[in-house]
Computed example of a mutant assay.
Amino acid sequence: MTQERTGIATFKGNPITLIGPELKVGDSAPSFTLSKNLLEQASLSDFAGKIKLISVVPSLDTGVCDAQTRRFNEAASELGEEVVVLTISADLPFAQARWCGAAGVDRVVTLSDYRDNSFGTAYGVLIKEFVIDMRAIFVVDQNDIIQYVEYLPEMSHHPDYDQAIDAVKKLIG
């Protein structure tokens, strides 16, 4: 049975239910398989040996998600080759590609959880009521251990960009 977590997050003040566990610093990052496009998949192991900043957004077509992805795209250019920035949403892969093209976002890897919401369930961010992923940030080290986590208590709020980027910088050799 999949764990349901209530009373910890809202959307515009209304309570929502998150599916999956609450991950913590020190936990092993759960494996995932997400869609890069309609034919190609990506998994955690594809980024082995890299520091991973995982930015989870409900949909790129909303203001906060747009700003979040643009901010981490800018940061990606300063973080170097040993860091990969992943933006994960339940948007369809071709919608993600269209948005990135229109926004000029070219340094983050967008991955889609649209097929089976397995990422959302494994990382505890799947919103039961909307079947999309809740805004969250995970920093995962080269050994796939979570070093930073931020679950947003309100879906429409911005994450702490500076803390997430600082967590990545602490891991850079």
Rank of each mutant, 00 (worst) to 15 (best):
S35D: 13
E78C: 00
G49T: 02
D66I: 02
L44N: 08
D66W: 05
P93M: 12
S45P: 00
T69N: 12
A95F: 01
V84N: 10
S35A: 15
K52M: 12
R70H: 12
L39W: 13
A67R: 13
A67Y: 13
E82Y: 00
S45L: 12
T69V: 14
T69H: 01
K50Y: 02
G49S: 03
R71D: 00
R71L: 09
S43M: 04
T62Y: 06
V57F: 10
Q68A: 10
S59R: 03
T69P: 05
D61K: 11
S59P: 02
S89R: 04
A95S: 15
I88K: 09
P93V: 04
T62K: 12
V64W: 08
E82P: 01
L92C: 01
S89V: 11
Q68R: 02
D66P: 00
V64K: 05
V56D: 02
I54E: 04
V56H: 04
D91H: 05
E81M: 02
S55H: 03
L86S: 06
G49D: 01
R70P: 01
T69M: 11
P58T: 11
P93E: 12
F72I: 04
S59N: 06
E78I: 00
K50L: 10
D91R: 02
V64L: 06
G63P: 08
T87I: 11
N37E: 09
V57D: 06
L53S: 03
N73P: 08
K50S: 11
D66E: 14
C65R: 08
A42E: 10
V56L: 06
E82V: 03
L60M: 14
P93Q: 11
D46M: 05
V83K: 07
V56C: 14
E81L: 09
G49L: 03
R70Q: 10
Q68H: 15
L92H: 01
L38T: 07
D61Y: 15
D91E: 12
I51H: 07
V85W: 04
V83R: 06
F47T: 06
V85H: 11
L92N: 00
A48L: 03
S43I: 01
I51F: 05
Q41V: 11
L44E: 08
L79V: 04
